[in-house]
């Protein structure tokens, strides 16, 4: 005790020094967590209630657990139109994001790794595509597809969704930083063709960036509302966002739709939430490449 008289006092002082900022910081984090998660908690709780309980019980706590019944009702409503919307969304989004990521990666890679005339021009034109407002595209696209009698088809939403200029930017940044020229040279000396080198070596080195591009492209297409709103009139082609929107506009006339909108909203969030959780490791490393440069 007597040998180290200053130790306890020092510890206390040091803890005093950081305990106030630490608890203030944690308090802010806690308040923000409530802000960000409370609406989702409300949605989940609301999805488990039947109609009387939805208005009659505490909106933030469970009554009887009817989630599965509600999902059953949702899927059964009008011959499973909601399931069809969900599958449409999966087809629009999964397809467009996979193929779109590949195209953006190839283009960004070429812009990073080859010197050819017009390289900077192509890059700058593609990049200014990021700034173009969605309505400036959706409306003329509707007219152009109209000339080919192709509005109100799957392709009218799918094809424009393939183009992701920001993905090209990210792919270029990442290919510049993550694919060494020496490696490409070695592959060339070994006689590998350029395409083969890309698919076997470069794409693998770029994979964290590719997952990031894929995820953000996936979110953008999954959340897309304007293009399907403009293009589609046939309900059977709707993505889930447009379907939920159309139900929500009818709630005052058809009150039983309210419960379906709530459960449907919950289900429409689930695929993205799962994708983000599973691929966390990738997008965390990938997002920094876009931000730092």
């Amino acid at each position: 005790m007597t040998t180290h008289p200053t130790t306890p006092a020092e510890t206390v002082r040091r803890r005093d020094h950081s305990i106030l900022p630490r608890s203030a910081a944690m308090l802010i984090m806690g308040v923000c967590t409530v802000y960000f998660l409370l609406p989702l908690w409300w949605l989940f709780v609301g999805s488990t209630k039947n109609r009387e309980q939805f208005t009659g019980t505490d909106p933030l706590w469970f009554a009887d657990f009817h989630l599965l019944d509600n999902i059953g009702d949702l899927l059964a409503y009008r011959d499973g139109i909601f399931l069809r919307w969900t599958l449409n969304s999966v087809a629009y989004t999964g397809g467009a994001a996979l193929l779109g990521t590949l195209l953006a990666a190839m283009c960004g890679y070429a812009l990073a790794k080859y010197r050819f005339p017009g390289r900077e021009l192509i890059f700058n034109v593609v990049l200014s595509g990021v700034l173009v407002p969605a309505t400036a595209l959706a409306l003329p696209l509707f007219l152009i597809f109209g000339q080919f009698q192709a509005t109100n088809t799957f392709w009218a939403v799918f094809l424009p969704s393939l183009v992701n200029p920001f993905g090209v930017y990210l792919a270029r940044v990442y290919a510049t930083a993550g694919v060494p020229d020496g490696l490409l040279e070695a592959a060339r000396i070994d006689g590998a063709g350029e395409l083969r080198t890309f698919f076997t070596i470069s794409a693998r080195l770029m994979s964290p960036a590719l997952v990031t591009i894929f995820l953000f492209h996936f979110v953008a297409v999954w959340n897309n509302f304007l293009l399907p709103l403009v293009m589609l009139s046939d309900e059977r082609l709707f993505p889930v966002t447009l379907g939920l929107y159309s139900w929500n506009t009818q709630i005052t006339q058809v009150p039983e739709l309210r419960g379906l909108v709530i459960v449907g909203s919950l289900i429409s969030i689930a695929p993205l939430a799962v994708a983000f959780l599973l691929l966390q490791r990738f997008w965390r490393t990938g997002i920094s490449t876009g931000a730092v440069k």
């Binding site: 190839m106 283009c107 070429a110 593609v126 595209l137 003329p140 152009i144 183009v163 200029p165 395409l195």
Partner: peptide, 25 residues
């Protein structure tokens, strides 16, 4: 040739679904 193969798929779609609509507008 490799550059063309890498750039063309995106480039064509970009021209069709970005540049053409803007011009058309």
């Amino acid at each position: 040739r490799a550059v063309a193969v890498f750039v063309a798929p995106f480039g064509i779609l970009f021209a069709l679904f970005y540049l053409a609509p803007i011009g058309y507008s």
